[in-house]
Amino acid sequence: MPAEKNTTTPPVTAFILVKTTPEWLAMTPQERVDAFTTQVIPAIKAKTTGVRSRFYDTEFYSARVTDVWVWEADDHEAYQLLIDALRETPFWDRYFEIVDLLVGTENGYARTYGLAPVASVTA
């Protein structure tokens, strides 16, 4: 049975793969938190709304990518404004080297073909 047509724009999800720089690693953990709350958050709030973030440490398993920033934006404009804001902070290519940007929308294939999303479920 085809899925009901989605009439809202799906959120844009960006997986930003980064590598820490020596400058970032030289900071104490508290200095890192302070840098994020005083340099990144205000820049984002000044440029856009409708964005959320999560952060994943990957340095235990990868030498090329030490962290993955997952940003979700309400739409493409909010995402573009987010990237503009991040680029104006030291987090972009000073504290972190941007390795790659992977951007997509969840279950895009299902919306394109009018199908129900397929996902695994565990009990």
Rank of each mutant, 00 (worst) to 15 (best):
V68N: 00
V33K: 07
L102C: 07
T37L: 09
A116M: 06
T13P: 00
W92F: 14
Q30W: 07
V40K: 00
T8M: 10
G104Q: 02
V68S: 04
A46K: 14
R87Y: 08
A119K: 11
S120E: 04
K19L: 03
D100W: 06
V12E: 00
V33N: 12
L81Y: 06
T122W: 08
Q39T: 05
W71I: 15
V121P: 00
T28W: 09
L102R: 12
T49P: 11
G50H: 10
D34S: 10
T112M: 13
E4K: 15
E88M: 04
V99T: 12
A14H: 02
R64W: 07
V121I: 15
I98W: 01
P11Y: 00
E23M: 07
W69T: 05
R87W: 10
R64A: 14
T9D: 03
T105V: 03
F55G: 13
E106H: 05
K45Q: 14
R52K: 15
V33G: 04
Y95N: 05
D57T: 11
A78M: 06
A78E: 05
A85P: 00
P29Y: 09
D67I: 04
T9E: 07
E23W: 06
V103C: 05
M1V: 13
V121E: 11
R111L: 12
Y95E: 12
L25R: 14
T13I: 01
K45F: 06
I83Y: 08
Y79R: 10
E59H: 15
G108H: 09
T58A: 15
E59W: 13
D84R: 11
E23L: 15
P22G: 12
A14C: 05
T49E: 09
R111A: 11
T20H: 03
T21N: 03
K5P: 08
F60N: 10
A63H: 09
T122R: 11
T9M: 01
L17H: 04
A35Q: 03
T7P: 03
T8D: 09
P90E: 10
N6P: 12
A3I: 01
E97Y: 09
Q30S: 12
V12A: 01
V99Q: 13
F91P: 02
P90T: 11
I44S: 12
L25T: 14
V18L: 09
Y79G: 04
Q80T: 15
Y95H: 14
G114I: 00
E97K: 14
A43H: 01
T122M: 08
H76G: 12
T38H: 03
W24P: 00
L102P: 01
P29D: 05
T28Q: 07
S53W: 15
W92R: 01
L102T: 11
T48G: 08
E77A: 15
M27L: 14
A26T: 13
A73K: 01
R54Q: 14
A85Q: 03
L102A: 05
V70F: 00
T37P: 02
T112V: 07
A43L: 05
V70M: 04
